[in-house]
Amino acid sequence: MDVRLSQEQQALRDSAAQVVDRLAPRAVGQIGDAARMATLDAAVAASGWWELRTAVDGGDSLASGVEPAVVAEELGRGLADTPFLGPTLAAELRRLAGAAPGDVTETVALDPALSSLARAFDGTSPAAVAIDARGSAQALLLVPDGECHRLARVELPAAPGGLDLTRPSVVLDPSSDVVLVDEPAGPITADDLARWTALGLALTCADLVGIMRGAVDLASAYATERRQYGAAIGSFQAVQHMLADAFVAMEGSRSITLHAAWAVDALAAPEALTAATLAKAYCARAATSVCETAIQVHGGIGNTWECLAHVYLRRSLLSSDVLGNAGASLMHVLVHHDLEAADGLR
């Protein structure tokens, strides 16, 4: 057992941090700046981060769950408004199905609550939302096939939008056709789906850890600068203790997330999924509270559109919901421990 990042993982983290520090938005006014976003997209495309979960010979993934989690944490910290979660999860689906890599940029479609991968039953688009959809021409989803599922794709309409200002979603057009992904794509088993969900949960947890780091940094910097009663507000214990609690929640989240990211490939699929839901329950609950603290520390300014604090909160609310929020994840934990029979739980 040695849960320190390897030298390669540290190098990956450092290069992700550099891209984020150079190209991610530093103010609300920079969000939507097409030139900056194009440069950021190009840097991410050149980095090979989208390919971390593509198949190598024999079908195994190029990298473990830890490497994309390391990248996701840095992107979350910097509010990087560039696709990563969607393309990575799409690549993982193709790998698990044994399909060829996509020939256009693509993401995944989830049910409207974002709690699971969307399923199409009659050849047309179900009610579903493609997440992290900017730049994606299509989204992957499932078509039930006996005990298993088939991988399918649907073209995406333009104009993504929604809650997260850095990773817009798009609602599927109900009239679009759902087309099965070509051979050699095979069936997706229940175990495949559990492992895919484990990766998705681990990556959203890593994003939440990054969001918490970024939000604590933002609020700490503001508390050092902002003066009232002739002193920096960060010198007041009432403010210090909120920020200390936020930092501590982030550190706990990071520890449980590292394990979930490692477990994606290292444990059997059901155990990987349980490790991921334990992490998601913890991180989703922590992240909401940490982002709310960041808003509170900013006072009135924190409640204005121009303050980055709400951009962190919005991003955290999306990541929290993707593949199961705190409550849904806690429910999974209870089922895993055979505790779900209690009165009124299900």
Binding site: A223, A231, S235, Q240, H241, L243, V248
Partner: peptide, 15 residues
């Protein structure tokens, strides 16, 4: 403990 985290890790100013 919160005082210590705030001051020594987050670098918030002394009161």
């Amino acid at each position: 403990q919160r005082n210590l985290v705030a001051r020594r890790i987050l670098g918030l100013p002394a009161s």
